[in-house]
Design a protein around this nucleic acid. Sequence first.
DNA 1: TTGTACGCGTTATCAG
DNA 2: CTGATAACGCGTACAA
Lengths: 211, 211
Amino acid sequence: MKKKNVSAELVAKKANVSQSTVSRVFTPGKSVSEETKQKVLKVANELNYKPNALARGLITNKSKLIGLAMKNKQNPFYHEVLALFTQKLKQFGYSVLFVYTENEEIQQEEINQFIEFNVEAIIITDAVLSSDLVKKLKSSNIPVMLFNRYDETLNCNSVSSDNIFATRSVAEYFYNQGYKHNLYVSGQHNTSTNRDRLYGFRQYFSEKNKI
Amino acid sequence: MKKKNVSAELVAKKANVSQSTVSRVFTPGKSVSEETKQKVLKVANELNYKPNALARGLITNKSKLIGLAMKNKQNPFYHEVLALFTQKLKQFGYSVLFVYTENEEIQQEEINQFIEFNVEAIIITDAVLSSDLVKKLKSSNIPVMLFNRYDETLNCNSVSSDNIFATRSVAEYFYNQGYKHNLYVSGQHNTSTNRDRLYGFRQYFSEKNKI
DNA sequence: TTGTACGCGTTATCAG
DNA sequence: CTGATAACGCGTACAA
């Protein structure tokens, strides 16, 4: 049994138009007469035709893929983050290439998956990237975004909450309740998130104690 | 600024070999002399060349992509499942195209992402697929696997635990402890998982009570 | 508005 | 073992 993929070429033949016309029908914004458009869509539907994203990505050099790397498999928060990213990106016509890292640092191997599939951008959540890899990605012109983590030395985009402000608020609350000496129990030390939280907490108390 | 992708062609030129030779170097099992292999690899490394998975997938008709659909963003169990699948699949050279469904049933739109990227198989976790879509996928020759859920009417592969046995064991335990009348608190009713669990629990007690 | 011809980067095929 | 050439399915100048 032969697996014959339905291509734009086949649709074109059955609809008595050229392949480029079929292509235009499936590319928003291209000018096609309403009449031929309906004719093509009808045939395409019958044949269950869908444009091949691989071929499209190859010719346009836009894969419509976003690489998403994630480390933590315990923290449920990140699962929700993944879901939200995926959902939102779909609205913009992007699909998610998911990569899971066991190690603390993302490895070359994982990044290779991204590069080979020509992802248009990379989102890194809850993991670290060596400056070496960032450099390689820069030279490949692939933007990198850090989520909930940042690193001044890497200079790439990042979005995260203001953890210093957050723990300052917590500290303030305790302080006003009359607790002057508090213990801070932290998560992993090597993340900007936890460093900031500790910093904010300490900062507030040291300021108050000076007065 | 022009974004020039390093292609096998470019590597070939710099290494004084044909483009097909470069291709062979990056295809395990193809015969290339050790000498030229090293020569090519050296140039490829300098140029930071990586084969383009889109082009490869196009010609081989093997995208090396597995579609993974998931619904539940609350249950941390499924996050771990995702991580494990991703990790294991990578070992076999596959990457994961992740799709998140808000709805109970997977929609045509989500399946389209899979078809367009020519995924080689689809794994569905914690969600339902209409028999209509299954039929379409069958005709596209894309295998579907259900994880932790099954459906006799759909006849596609599935892997899940023996929930009937599991709750029978629980029931047995309670019974032997002397608790003869128990309340079963269930999850969502419309899943095979919860149906089986309830069934096993009930079954055990009704058998015992007959005696 | 539509068709022709070419190219994207790769693997497959066939000669040599 | 190696090279030339076709094909994969699509988008896009260019011409009509």
